[in-house]
Amino acid sequence: MASDFGLSSEYTGDCLILSTTGYINSDGGDQILAKIQEALARDINRVVINLMDSKVINSIGISFLIESIELLMNAGGRMVFANLDPSVEKALQIMGLFHFAGKASSVEDAHADLN
């Protein structure tokens, strides 16, 4: 399948920061989930997802994010979204993700929120 999704990750202390680019669909969601599972295996349960360069998300991508949030919550952790495009923010809002995850206007704010 064609995909323009890109994912980069870095660990800052005990926090994983994921930055995405492009369409968050099944492929993108799966990659995010895999990164979070890797982090949990390293006992890292706090994650910032920087969505600055992702302007589109579909429901399958969102389902992977929900699963990621559940995994983190089951491990006593938390996820915070940063730099949300208004349309993506609205999609996550409607799908109820902000009942279980935070949002912040920057990665720094998200990191501060987790700490």
């Binding site: 323009d4 589109v56 579909n58």
Partner: peptide
């Protein structure tokens, strides 16, 4: 594409059966 959870899509603009513009997503 997002609305229907399609992996990709294409939009063509044609006149008299001749495509003169194509958009791709992604």
């Amino acid at each position: 594409a997002a609305l229907t959870s399609a992996a990709s899509g294409r939009l063509t603009v044609s006149r008299d059966g001749q495509v003169f513009k194509t958009y791709h997503f992604p």
